[in-house]
Nucleic acid binder design. Structure first.
Lengths: 219, 219, 219, 219
DNA sequence: AATGAATGAGGGTTCATTCAT
DNA sequence: CATGAATGAACCCTCATTCAT
């Protein structure tokens, strides 16, 4: 899950992998903790305990709580990018491809609530960890290019209306999904409905797909 | 701005209005502080100082920091509800009315970043303050009914497609707007664009309107 | 010992003096602790415990450990200034007056080892607390003026040689005394003699007096 | 600069000289670090890094941070002793010789601020490292004997007054110089003068020489 | 109503030192 | 000899909250 990069990158010295394990355990525990309580709510002490390591190793590896937080952010963006890169939609008809993209975007958030929580929390901090991160050069996500190509194809084929901007289509479909999960608690309260239930989620998923397909003129 | 409600809730004592002023100043300062730093990031001490009142009054009026936070949440929901109630769209053609609704939803968030921040933060806490609030009975927002009526009219007139669910249309249009503002920082970083600039915001606004209007089959 | 200034200065509220007592106890304990271990060696926890107060009051009163340290420095300089101001030597013959000054300078350090230790420690920090202190405007010590006047009289009377500079005479006599106490441990080791014994101190005192009186040409 | 002593003290292993270099680099870095921050302020980590060696070597060579500190102290005392031993004043007239001694004492401190800082810091620790050091048997410094012989000659010749005690004359002249440098920061603050400037130092040097020469009756 | 004093419970971080390779 | 990993013991400081006037 965390950055192992196929055996490369471990420091010299031991070869039993305990160092890499420590680092990974730490990242895993940190991800859960930061997702649950945010940067401020998470406790370094708890993270260390849950990772079965000494608290001071946090500072050995990541310099500070915020360094660890940044590493977690880098991790989750790397992951989603990898997942997006694995999408192979170019052989599908444009409409089908777009549908798959929307579903993927929705499902990824549904299955990765930690991603949602962490991104929301990072925004609460003005994205300063992402902005300060030198290690994370490129966050541009493959989905944008896939979407761009898909829209291009659909517009050329005439199944999508002209003038669609990939960035805005992405913001729309991603926004609808993200908003639903990020704000699920207040929305459930406001509308007095269990929007977190599997049924509600499935319903919302279908509605978003339909909404976007109509919006791009596929129907 | 804050909740006065004529004689309800304020503690006994002076009647020269300074008490109500204190309470309001407190709520105003708290709103800004909680929006800026979240429930955890805000400091009771700072809030009291910025409201020019004694820290003890916070506990006198609201019992605890979380009580104050809850009051702020109640306040902002009351406000948006009031604003929504003032919308008078029933005399407009359905499409125009819908357009106005979308624009209102977007503009309200654009002009009330504290609302966005506070709602996002409350979601980070599982909406437990909203759920625990007995004072806030009904958060159901008028916009839903207005939207419902508007969609009904549009569908009846044939300018909107059949089968539109007001809740889902609301989640879509609100989601696109909310996501854009709530996640503006990370999005700007990911796409290397200043999405917070007035131009970008105006552009996004127009795109959302078009997107929704197409989605409901208005074009 | 610490700043009480005869009942003035205490904040409103209680009148049982517990606040002022806390503050003073704190300063007294801090002085001992900083003298014993220096700024770094002293423990806020220990200081609070020895002052019989809650540790957090340190921050309530002085903002930080360094703030407390600065307050202690201000205190000891105020004290020595007060003691110096009480010297009344103008009616004595110049030579007698000078002798008294030398003895006072020596005795003050002998009786106030904390002053010696604190000043030495502050120098180890580049005097940054004294320099940053806005509260301590004037550290110029009365002894300089008394010394200046004494030398003037002695030179006029012909019992002292011409050309004596008060600053340098002060640096000489104070230096000899301060060095003796500040470096007593290493000197005792180097010379294999118990320079801290009462006899050694008395002997050194007499020698310094003689030395200075000869140096100014009084003999 | 550091202690080599040809084959004594260094641990077994290489004979290519890198071990001795490591040891010396370590001592040099440690001296600077301890002079700058004292025993407590210096960081083993920083010292090792600045010496370009592994932190573990510190423990390999010196057992502990305090062991290293003790070694540094031994070093600086050895150095000053060597410098003092190189003084050849017996052929000079007593007064000239004494003048040279005073100047040397002053200049050595002026040129070796690390010596001043380290000795002051060791005194803050009650000279316990010097006292515990078994390796440093004799710290008695040659200057005392040279001074003793010089005073003897001067008294015999009648250019110095009778009854001068070498130890006390040394304490006086060394004290004036040491005090000036060790307390330069607080003194500059108290007297609002830049006592660290080259001009001020030169002036003080001349004044001390005059002061001592008068005190011993040379004028 | 209003103020300063006081407190308890951590929270993040540091650092000398040792382990294991 | 040399290296990174790991640890234990503190240390300074913060903050929501309550007390006492």
């Amino acid at each position: 899950m965390a950055n192992k990069l196929a055996g490369s990158g471990q420091p010299p010295g031991r070869s039993d992998g305990s160092a890499e394990n420590s680092r990974e355990n730490l990242l895993t525990a940190a991800r859960a903790a930061f997702a649950a309580g945010g940067l401020q709510g998470a406790r370094v002490h708890d993270i260390a305990r849950r990772a079965n390591i000494n608290k001071q190793l946090v500072y050995h590896y990541f310099g500070s709580k915020e360094g660890l937080y940044t590493a977690v952010l880098e991790d989750i963006y790397r992951e989603i990018r990898e997942r997006e890169q694995a999408l192979e939609l170019s052989s599908l008809p444009a409409e089908t491809a777009l549908r798959r993209l929307i579903e993927f975007s929705f499902d990824y958030l549904a299955e990765n609530p930690e991603f949602v929580a962490l991104v929301a929390d990072e925004n609460a901090h003005g994205a300063r960890h992402l902005n300060d991160s030198v290690q994370v050069g490129d966050l541009n996500r493959p989905i944008i290019e896939i979407l761009s190509e898909t829209l291009r194809r659909g517009m050329d084929e005439g199944v999508f209306r002209q003038g669609l901007d990939p960035l805005h289509v992405y913001l729309s479909m991603a926004g609808m999904a993200f908003f639903y999960f990020a704000n699920n608690h207040t929305l459930s309260r406001v509308f007095c409905r269990p929007l977190g239930s599997p049924e509600a989620i499935a319903e919302r998923r279908a509605q978003i797909v339909e909404f976007v397909l109509h919006a791009v003129g596929a129907r």
